[in-house]
Simulated assay, not measured.
Amino acid sequence: MVREHTTEAKKFYASAKWKKARKNYIESPEVAGLCEHCLRQGLYERGYILDHIIEINSENISDTNITLNPDNFQFLCLFHHNRKTFSKADKSSTQEGYGFNSRGQYVPLSEID
């Protein structure tokens, strides 16, 4: 399941301001390129996606307090990003009986380790 970004979001993610904010956050000593959720569990897994805690949408994409604020960032491995993104209450992003395994792969729940 792939979510497509809007034209406005694609423009934002291609911007120099986003690229600089992303690089600075991921390379900060506190994050050091590691998944922040894993770190809280004492695990050292590489991060994969810089995630916005408050998700970007058409109403807030121009609000730099949301889009470029490091307090709204978290660097996550694929597993934690997919768990957050695809386990929303509406469940519209996943088919019943499917989920994400520890490698971030979309599989039947019976195959989740």
Rank of each mutant, 00 (worst) to 15 (best):
M1T: 10
R3F: 11
E4T: 08
H5M: 13
H5C: 06
T6W: 08
T6P: 12
T7F: 10
E8T: 15
E8Y: 05
K17F: 09
W18A: 01
K23V: 13
N24I: 10
Y25M: 09
I26P: 15
E27F: 05
E30K: 10
E30G: 01
V31T: 12
A32N: 15
G33P: 13
G33D: 11
C35L: 04
C38V: 04
R40P: 03
Q41N: 07
G42H: 05
G42E: 04
L43I: 05
Y44L: 09
E45I: 10
Y48K: 12
I49R: 12
I49Y: 14
L50A: 03
D51V: 00
I53T: 13
N57M: 01
N57K: 06
S58Y: 05
N60W: 05
N60T: 03
I61W: 08
S62R: 05
D63Y: 04
N65C: 07
I66K: 07
L68A: 07
L68F: 09
N69Q: 11
P70G: 04
N72C: 09
Q74M: 13
F75I: 00
L76T: 01
C77P: 07
F79E: 08
H80A: 00
H81K: 03
R83L: 06
K84I: 02
T85W: 00
T85Q: 11
F86K: 02
F86N: 08
S87T: 09
K88G: 07
D90N: 14
K91N: 12
S93V: 02
S93P: 00
Q95A: 08
E96K: 03
E96T: 06
G97K: 02
G97H: 09
Y98I: 00
G99C: 04
F100P: 04
N101Y: 01
R103H: 06
R103Y: 05
G104N: 06
V107D: 09
V107N: 06
L109R: 07
D113K: 10
